[in-house]
Design a binder for these strands. Structure first.
Lengths: 151, 151
DNA sequence: TTAAGAACAGAAAAATATTCTACAAAATAA
DNA sequence: TTATTTTGTAGAATATTTTTCTGTTCTTAA
Protein backbone atom coordinates (compact mmCIF):
# COMPACT_ATOMS: atom_id res chain seq x y z
CA UNK A 1 0.00 0.00 0.00
CA UNK A 2 1.58 3.20 -1.16
CA UNK A 3 0.45 6.80 -0.77
CA UNK A 4 -1.80 6.57 -3.83
CA UNK A 5 -3.64 3.58 -2.37
CA UNK A 6 -4.17 5.48 0.86
CA UNK A 7 -5.56 8.52 -0.95
CA UNK A 8 -7.78 6.20 -2.93
CA UNK A 9 -9.09 4.51 0.23
CA UNK A 10 -9.81 7.84 1.87
CA UNK A 11 -11.89 8.88 -1.14
CA UNK A 12 -13.72 5.55 -1.34
CA UNK A 13 -14.48 5.47 2.37
CA UNK A 14 -16.27 8.82 2.05
CA UNK A 15 -18.24 7.87 -1.02
CA UNK A 16 -18.17 4.48 -2.66
CA UNK A 17 -20.16 5.77 -5.64
CA UNK A 18 -17.33 7.91 -6.95
CA UNK A 19 -16.57 6.74 -10.49
CA UNK A 20 -13.13 5.54 -11.49
CA UNK A 21 -13.05 8.55 -13.81
CA UNK A 22 -13.49 11.01 -10.95
CA UNK A 23 -10.96 9.12 -8.88
CA UNK A 24 -8.48 9.00 -11.75
CA UNK A 25 -8.51 12.76 -12.15
CA UNK A 26 -8.10 13.33 -8.41
CA UNK A 27 -5.20 10.91 -8.27
CA UNK A 28 -3.61 11.85 -11.60
CA UNK A 29 -3.86 8.33 -12.94
CA UNK A 30 -5.63 6.59 -15.79
CA UNK A 31 -9.00 4.94 -15.32
CA UNK A 32 -7.41 1.53 -15.73
CA UNK A 33 -4.75 2.19 -13.13
CA UNK A 34 -7.39 3.20 -10.57
CA UNK A 35 -9.53 0.22 -11.50
CA UNK A 36 -6.65 -2.22 -11.03
CA UNK A 37 -5.74 -0.70 -7.67
CA UNK A 38 -9.30 -1.03 -6.40
CA UNK A 39 -9.50 -4.66 -7.54
CA UNK A 40 -6.23 -5.39 -5.79
CA UNK A 41 -7.43 -3.80 -2.54
CA UNK A 42 -10.62 -5.90 -2.79
CA UNK A 43 -8.63 -9.10 -3.41
CA UNK A 44 -6.39 -8.40 -0.45
CA UNK A 45 -9.44 -7.86 1.74
CA UNK A 46 -8.41 -4.36 2.71
CA UNK A 47 -11.67 -3.23 1.19
CA UNK A 48 -14.16 -5.53 2.89
CA UNK A 49 -17.50 -4.27 1.60
CA UNK A 50 -19.58 -1.47 0.14
CA UNK A 51 -22.63 -0.47 2.13
CA UNK A 52 -25.49 2.00 2.14
CA UNK A 53 -25.93 4.18 5.21
CA UNK A 54 -29.46 5.19 6.18
CA UNK A 55 -30.58 8.14 8.28
CA UNK A 56 -31.66 6.38 11.45
CA UNK A 57 -34.06 9.13 12.46
CA UNK A 58 -36.00 8.71 9.23
CA UNK A 59 -36.52 5.00 9.74
CA UNK A 60 -37.58 5.18 13.40
CA UNK A 61 -34.30 3.95 14.84
CA UNK A 62 -33.10 7.20 16.35
CA UNK A 63 -33.26 6.09 19.97
CA UNK A 64 -29.79 4.77 20.69
CA UNK A 65 -28.77 3.00 23.88
CA UNK A 66 -25.43 1.67 25.03
CA UNK A 67 -25.95 -1.30 27.24
CA UNK A 68 -23.17 -2.61 29.45
CA UNK A 69 -23.54 -6.24 30.34
CA UNK A 70 -21.95 -8.51 32.93
CA UNK A 71 -22.24 -12.27 32.70
CA UNK A 72 -22.72 -14.57 35.68
CA UNK A 73 -20.02 -17.01 34.68
CA UNK A 74 -17.33 -16.90 32.02
CA UNK A 75 -16.78 -20.42 30.76
CA UNK A 76 -16.13 -20.69 27.05
CA UNK A 77 -19.41 -22.48 26.38
CA UNK A 78 -21.56 -19.91 28.14
CA UNK A 79 -19.78 -17.06 26.43
CA UNK A 80 -20.31 -18.42 22.94
CA UNK A 81 -23.89 -19.27 23.77
CA UNK A 82 -24.54 -15.73 24.93
CA UNK A 83 -22.80 -14.27 21.89
CA UNK A 84 -24.81 -16.38 19.49
CA UNK A 85 -28.04 -15.14 21.04
CA UNK A 86 -26.94 -11.50 20.97
CA UNK A 87 -25.98 -11.63 17.30
CA UNK A 88 -29.48 -12.74 16.42
CA UNK A 89 -31.13 -9.70 18.01
CA UNK A 90 -32.16 -7.20 15.32
CA UNK A 91 -32.09 -4.23 17.67
CA UNK A 92 -28.44 -4.86 18.55
CA UNK A 93 -26.31 -3.31 15.83
CA UNK A 94 -23.01 -3.72 17.64
CA UNK A 95 -21.66 -5.93 20.39
CA UNK A 96 -18.11 -5.81 21.66
CA UNK A 97 -16.46 -8.08 24.18
CA UNK A 98 -14.45 -5.82 26.47
CA UNK A 99 -12.09 -5.82 29.39
CA UNK A 100 -12.88 -4.07 32.66
CA UNK A 101 -15.86 -3.64 34.93
CA UNK A 102 -18.30 -5.38 32.60
CA UNK A 103 -18.05 -7.93 29.81
CA UNK A 104 -19.89 -6.51 26.82
CA UNK A 105 -20.88 -3.18 25.32
CA UNK A 106 -23.96 -3.28 23.12
CA UNK A 107 -25.27 -0.56 20.86
CA UNK A 108 -29.00 -0.83 20.50
CA UNK A 109 -31.15 1.17 18.07
CA UNK A 110 -34.91 1.40 18.43
CA UNK A 111 -37.71 3.92 17.88
CA UNK A 112 -38.25 5.26 21.36
CA UNK A 113 -38.15 4.49 25.07
CA UNK A 114 -41.27 2.42 24.84
CA UNK A 115 -39.72 0.17 22.22
CA UNK A 116 -36.56 -0.04 24.30
CA UNK A 117 -38.51 -1.15 27.32
CA UNK A 118 -40.19 -3.80 25.20
CA UNK A 119 -36.80 -4.94 23.93
CA UNK A 120 -35.36 -5.15 27.44
CA UNK A 121 -38.24 -7.08 28.88
CA UNK A 122 -38.91 -9.51 26.05
CA UNK A 123 -35.44 -10.00 24.62
CA UNK A 124 -32.39 -8.74 26.46
CA UNK A 125 -33.20 -9.87 29.98
CA UNK A 126 -34.32 -13.26 28.75
CA UNK A 127 -30.82 -14.01 27.45
CA UNK A 128 -29.03 -16.83 29.18
CA UNK A 129 -26.18 -16.16 31.63
CA UNK A 130 -26.72 -12.43 32.08
CA UNK A 131 -25.60 -11.09 35.45
CA UNK A 132 -26.47 -7.44 35.17
CA UNK A 133 -27.17 -4.74 32.62
CA UNK A 134 -26.65 -1.01 32.68
CA UNK A 135 -28.25 1.23 30.07
CA UNK A 136 -26.77 4.54 28.99
CA UNK A 137 -28.86 6.68 26.67
CA UNK A 138 -27.49 8.70 23.79
CA UNK A 139 -28.59 12.31 23.98
CA UNK A 140 -26.47 13.58 21.10
CA UNK A 141 -24.34 12.35 18.23
CA UNK A 142 -21.12 14.34 18.08
CA UNK A 143 -19.29 12.18 15.56
CA UNK A 144 -20.21 8.93 13.89
CA UNK A 145 -17.83 7.98 11.13
CA UNK A 146 -16.91 4.79 9.31
CA UNK A 147 -13.79 6.31 7.75
CA UNK A 148 -10.33 5.70 9.06
CA UNK A 149 -7.66 8.31 8.50
CA UNK A 150 -4.70 6.45 7.03
CA UNK A 151 -1.12 7.26 7.82
CA UNK B 1 -42.21 3.67 2.39
CA UNK B 2 -43.88 0.42 1.55
CA UNK B 3 -42.71 -3.16 1.92
CA UNK B 4 -40.82 -3.06 -1.38
CA UNK B 5 -38.85 -0.01 -0.24
CA UNK B 6 -37.94 -1.80 2.95
CA UNK B 7 -36.77 -4.89 1.11
CA UNK B 8 -34.78 -2.65 -1.20
CA UNK B 9 -33.14 -0.86 1.70
CA UNK B 10 -32.23 -4.13 3.38
CA UNK B 11 -30.50 -5.27 0.19
CA UNK B 12 -28.72 -1.97 -0.35
CA UNK B 13 -27.54 -1.76 3.24
CA UNK B 14 -25.79 -5.11 2.84
CA UNK B 15 -24.18 -4.28 -0.48
CA UNK B 16 -24.45 -0.95 -2.21
CA UNK B 17 -22.83 -2.34 -5.34
CA UNK B 18 -25.77 -4.53 -6.24
CA UNK B 19 -26.94 -3.50 -9.69
CA UNK B 20 -30.46 -2.32 -10.34
CA UNK B 21 -30.81 -5.37 -12.53
CA UNK B 22 -30.03 -7.75 -9.66
CA UNK B 23 -32.32 -5.80 -7.37
CA UNK B 24 -35.10 -5.77 -9.92
CA UNK B 25 -35.11 -9.55 -10.19
CA UNK B 26 -35.09 -9.99 -6.42
CA UNK B 27 -37.96 -7.56 -6.04
CA UNK B 28 -39.92 -8.61 -9.12
CA UNK B 29 -39.82 -5.14 -10.59
CA UNK B 30 -38.41 -3.52 -13.67
CA UNK B 31 -35.00 -1.86 -13.68
CA UNK B 32 -36.62 1.55 -14.03
CA UNK B 33 -38.97 1.00 -11.11
CA UNK B 34 -36.06 0.09 -8.85
CA UNK B 35 -34.05 3.02 -10.15
CA UNK B 36 -36.85 5.49 -9.42
CA UNK B 37 -37.38 4.09 -5.93
CA UNK B 38 -33.71 4.45 -5.09
CA UNK B 39 -33.63 8.05 -6.36
CA UNK B 40 -36.69 8.84 -4.26
CA UNK B 41 -35.11 7.36 -1.14
CA UNK B 42 -32.00 9.45 -1.82
CA UNK B 43 -34.04 12.64 -2.32
CA UNK B 44 -35.92 12.05 0.91
CA UNK B 45 -32.63 11.57 2.75
CA UNK B 46 -33.54 8.10 3.94
CA UNK B 47 -30.47 6.92 2.09
CA UNK B 48 -27.81 9.27 3.41
CA UNK B 49 -24.63 7.97 1.81
CA UNK B 50 -22.74 5.11 0.21
CA UNK B 51 -19.48 4.16 1.87
CA UNK B 52 -16.64 1.69 1.63
CA UNK B 53 -15.83 -0.38 4.71
CA UNK B 54 -12.22 -1.36 5.29
CA UNK B 55 -10.86 -4.24 7.35
CA UNK B 56 -9.41 -2.38 10.32
CA UNK B 57 -6.91 -5.09 11.13
CA UNK B 58 -5.36 -4.80 7.69
CA UNK B 59 -4.78 -1.07 8.00
CA UNK B 60 -3.33 -1.13 11.51
CA UNK B 61 -6.41 0.15 13.29
CA UNK B 62 -7.42 -3.04 15.04
CA UNK B 63 -6.84 -1.80 18.58
CA UNK B 64 -10.21 -0.45 19.64
CA UNK B 65 -10.85 1.43 22.87
CA UNK B 66 -14.04 2.80 24.36
CA UNK B 67 -13.27 5.85 26.40
CA UNK B 68 -15.78 7.24 28.86
CA UNK B 69 -15.32 10.92 29.59
CA UNK B 70 -16.61 13.26 32.26
CA UNK B 71 -16.34 17.02 31.85
CA UNK B 72 -15.55 19.40 34.68
CA UNK B 73 -18.34 21.82 33.92
CA UNK B 74 -21.32 21.65 31.60
CA UNK B 75 -22.02 25.11 30.29
CA UNK B 76 -23.09 25.26 26.67
CA UNK B 77 -19.90 27.02 25.56
CA UNK B 78 -17.56 24.51 27.15
CA UNK B 79 -19.51 21.60 25.75
CA UNK B 80 -19.40 22.83 22.18
CA UNK B 81 -15.74 23.71 22.55
CA UNK B 82 -14.96 20.21 23.76
CA UNK B 83 -17.06 18.63 21.01
CA UNK B 84 -15.33 20.66 18.32
CA UNK B 85 -11.95 19.45 19.50
CA UNK B 86 -13.03 15.82 19.70
CA UNK B 87 -14.42 15.83 16.16
CA UNK B 88 -11.04 16.90 14.84
CA UNK B 89 -9.21 13.91 16.33
CA UNK B 90 -8.50 11.33 13.63
CA UNK B 91 -8.29 8.44 16.07
CA UNK B 92 -11.81 9.11 17.35
CA UNK B 93 -14.25 7.47 14.94
CA UNK B 94 -17.30 7.96 17.11
CA UNK B 95 -18.34 10.26 19.91
CA UNK B 96 -21.73 10.18 21.60
CA UNK B 97 -23.07 12.54 24.20
CA UNK B 98 -24.80 10.36 26.79
CA UNK B 99 -26.81 10.47 29.96
CA UNK B 100 -25.64 8.85 33.16
CA UNK B 101 -22.41 8.47 35.09
CA UNK B 102 -20.26 10.13 32.43
CA UNK B 103 -20.85 12.59 29.62
CA UNK B 104 -19.36 11.04 26.48
CA UNK B 105 -18.54 7.67 25.00
CA UNK B 106 -15.73 7.71 22.45
CA UNK B 107 -14.69 4.91 20.16
CA UNK B 108 -11.03 5.14 19.36
CA UNK B 109 -9.16 3.06 16.76
CA UNK B 110 -5.38 2.82 16.69
CA UNK B 111 -2.66 0.28 15.90
CA UNK B 112 -1.73 -0.94 19.36
CA UNK B 113 -1.39 -0.03 23.02
CA UNK B 114 1.69 2.04 22.35
CA UNK B 115 -0.17 4.17 19.87
CA UNK B 116 -3.08 4.47 22.27
CA UNK B 117 -0.77 5.69 25.01
CA UNK B 118 0.64 8.25 22.63
CA UNK B 119 -2.88 9.35 21.71
CA UNK B 120 -3.89 9.68 25.38
CA UNK B 121 -0.87 11.66 26.39
CA UNK B 122 -0.56 13.99 23.42
CA UNK B 123 -4.17 14.43 22.38
CA UNK B 124 -6.98 13.25 24.62
CA UNK B 125 -5.77 14.49 27.97
CA UNK B 126 -4.81 17.83 26.52
CA UNK B 127 -8.44 18.55 25.60
CA UNK B 128 -10.04 21.44 27.44
CA UNK B 129 -12.55 20.85 30.22
CA UNK B 130 -11.97 17.14 30.71
CA UNK B 131 -12.69 15.93 34.23
CA UNK B 132 -11.86 12.27 33.98
CA UNK B 133 -11.44 9.47 31.47
CA UNK B 134 -11.94 5.76 31.74
CA UNK B 135 -10.65 3.42 29.03
CA UNK B 136 -12.25 0.08 28.23
CA UNK B 137 -10.45 -2.15 25.76
CA UNK B 138 -12.12 -4.26 23.12
CA UNK B 139 -11.02 -7.88 23.31
CA UNK B 140 -13.44 -9.23 20.74
CA UNK B 141 -15.89 -8.09 18.10
CA UNK B 142 -19.10 -10.08 18.39
CA UNK B 143 -21.22 -8.00 16.01
CA UNK B 144 -20.51 -4.81 14.14
CA UNK B 145 -23.18 -3.95 11.64
CA UNK B 146 -24.32 -0.83 9.84
CA UNK B 147 -27.58 -2.39 8.70
CA UNK B 148 -30.88 -1.75 10.38
CA UNK B 149 -33.59 -4.36 10.22
CA UNK B 150 -36.69 -2.55 9.04
CA UNK B 151 -40.17 -3.32 10.27
C1' DT C 1 -66.74 9.83 -14.07
C1' DT C 2 -62.94 12.34 -15.02
C1' DA C 3 -58.56 14.58 -14.27
C1' DA C 4 -54.09 14.53 -12.09
C1' DG C 5 -50.30 12.44 -10.26
C1' DA C 6 -47.53 8.44 -9.02
C1' DA C 7 -45.55 4.07 -10.21
C1' DC C 8 -44.38 1.14 -13.71
C1' DA C 9 -42.34 -1.21 -18.09
C1' DG C 10 -39.62 -1.29 -22.23
C1' DA C 11 -36.56 0.82 -25.35
C1' DA C 12 -32.97 4.17 -26.41
C1' DA C 13 -29.11 6.83 -25.13
C1' DA C 14 -25.31 8.01 -22.25
C1' DA C 15 -21.98 6.87 -19.06
C1' DT C 16 -19.33 3.60 -16.71
C1' DA C 17 -17.02 -0.78 -15.74
C1' DT C 18 -14.28 -4.27 -17.52
C1' DT C 19 -11.22 -6.50 -20.66
C1' DC C 20 -7.53 -6.55 -23.84
C1' DT C 21 -3.18 -5.15 -25.83
C1' DA C 22 0.95 -2.92 -25.48
C1' DC C 23 4.54 -0.34 -23.37
C1' DA C 24 7.74 1.27 -19.77
C1' DA C 25 9.73 1.08 -15.31
C1' DA C 26 11.25 -1.54 -11.59
C1' DA C 27 12.72 -5.69 -9.54
C1' DT C 28 15.05 -10.10 -9.94
C1' DA C 29 18.14 -13.57 -11.65
C1' DA C 30 21.97 -15.06 -14.36
C1' DT D 1 26.47 -5.93 -16.36
C1' DT D 2 22.60 -7.97 -19.21
C1' DA D 3 18.58 -10.66 -19.71
C1' DT D 4 14.17 -11.77 -17.76
C1' DT D 5 10.30 -11.36 -15.15
C1' DT D 6 7.04 -8.70 -12.78
C1' DT D 7 4.40 -4.75 -11.90
C1' DG D 8 2.08 -0.63 -12.93
C1' DT D 9 0.40 2.01 -16.41
C1' DA D 10 -2.21 3.99 -20.63
C1' DG D 11 -5.39 3.78 -24.48
C1' DA D 12 -8.67 1.46 -27.15
C1' DA D 13 -12.40 -1.92 -27.57
C1' DT D 14 -16.14 -4.20 -25.50
C1' DA D 15 -19.64 -5.31 -22.09
C1' DT D 16 -22.56 -3.74 -18.67
C1' DT D 17 -24.91 -0.47 -16.18
C1' DT D 18 -27.06 3.88 -15.39
C1' DT D 19 -29.99 7.30 -16.88
C1' DT D 20 -33.37 9.30 -19.81
C1' DC D 21 -37.42 9.10 -22.56
C1' DT D 22 -42.02 7.61 -23.94
C1' DG D 23 -46.18 5.63 -23.13
C1' DT D 24 -49.24 2.87 -20.10
C1' DT D 25 -51.55 1.51 -15.92
C1' DC D 26 -53.06 2.36 -11.39
C1' DT D 27 -54.52 5.15 -7.65
C1' DT D 28 -56.60 9.11 -5.67
C1' DA D 29 -59.32 13.12 -5.23
C1' DA D 30 -62.50 16.34 -7.15
Amino acid sequence: MDLTDKKLLVLLQEDSKKTTKELSSKLNLSVTAVYERIKKLEREGIISKYVTILDKNKIDKGFVVFCHIKLIKHSKDLISEFEKEVVSLNEVLECFHVSGDYDYILKICVKDMEEYREFMVTKLTTLQHIGSTHSTFMIGEVKNSTSFVLN
